[in-house]
Design a protein around this nucleic acid. Sequence first.
DNA 1: TTAATTATTTGACTTTTATCAAATGATTTT
DNA 2: AAAATCATTTGATAAAAGTCAAATAATTAA
Lengths: 192, 192
Amino acid sequence: MLPVPDSFLQFIQQIQPLSQESLVAILPFLTQKNFIKKDFLVKQGNVSDELYFIMSGTVREYFEDANTNEINTWFGFENSIAISSFSFFSQKPSLTNIQAMEDTHTIVLKHEDLQKLFNQFHEIERLGRLLAEQYLVQIEEMKIILQTLSAKQRYEYILENKPEFIKRIPLKYLASFLGIKLETLSRVRGQK
Amino acid sequence: MLPVPDSFLQFIQQIQPLSQESLVAILPFLTQKNFIKKDFLVKQGNVSDELYFIMSGTVREYFEDANTNEINTWFGFENSIAISSFSFFSQKPSLTNIQAMEDTHTIVLKHEDLQKLFNQFHEIERLGRLLAEQYLVQIEEMKIILQTLSAKQRYEYILENKPEFIKRIPLKYLASFLGIKLETLSRVRGQK
DNA sequence: TTAATTATTTGACTTTTATCAAATGATTTT
DNA sequence: AAAATCATTTGATAAAAGTCAAATAATTAA
């Protein structure tokens, strides 16, 4: 069986402490997958039936719009869960890619196995609910940023609230995440 | 006990069919609240401990930004659930108001009672998870609209995907929902 | 370590959207 | 039904952001 890192257990216990019984039941379903830079965890158009816990590395979620521009929608670092939410929840084709920005180690849990765990353990279902609630609130915050702030203010929001983004994400990816052009982002950085 | 309308039961059954036992357990916790136009279901700054099922009427969720502009973040019609998500989930002060746009009839479920139901019935917890997942995906879609589309395209998205918004929401509210100014929305409507 | 590639910045210009003011249209209240 | 209020449109102008091209900087690979 996979040796599960503490970081994963801590991640869970922080959201919803689980009984020994639940934890033990989860372990056999976990596998490890490693990705090298530019590998895809999820490909647009495929059904994503896996949830990834990022042990190390960084990933981005993006899609290609009508003009084949890449639009980045999410960035994931170590100790976070990466999923293509629409696809994973509905088991329909993914609208987005998830790609490793650097070499990335993940723990994988299959959709099907997660459903089994949900069925078997109420407290795991609760973990799922709490996770969904948390993500919902995070996405909502980002939605309001995009709804209300100017290019400059969006950048300042990131500086203030997600400083690690500046360090670890190429500006060309960050720009579309902020809904602005690379050149605008560069100019906005120059001011201030 | 409150006579619960079919629409509410149907709403639930469509997401996660519940046993008779669960349904019967929910009923005693439901109350009815009616709001006249401009009444507040939720006030910014207060902890929102209620979830509302809208039986009839329309509501808007909005907040006041730094310049006391109203920013509309969500619109709710009959047969949908209105919550101030951050506040309801975390039981911290609400960042938003929820206000009736017309006379509105709701069924109310208290946070505390919902937690009891979650504890008692795994299948109600599942309903909660599925609802959170669904809302997450909806919010994510709107986030991408705001991230990628021009004023004109945002309006066309609404025309195409939320035609009832055009009919039922004053343009002055719709504008900030779309992250554009009222005058721009009006101009964009003129074209095409 | 140099060449090649990739990322970021800068400049000149265009397009889009915001702003402010006023006019028109619609709705509500007396 | 007229007055008052509220919602939407229109016009002129300003500000913000996008576009295209090129320069510079940083990183990667031979």
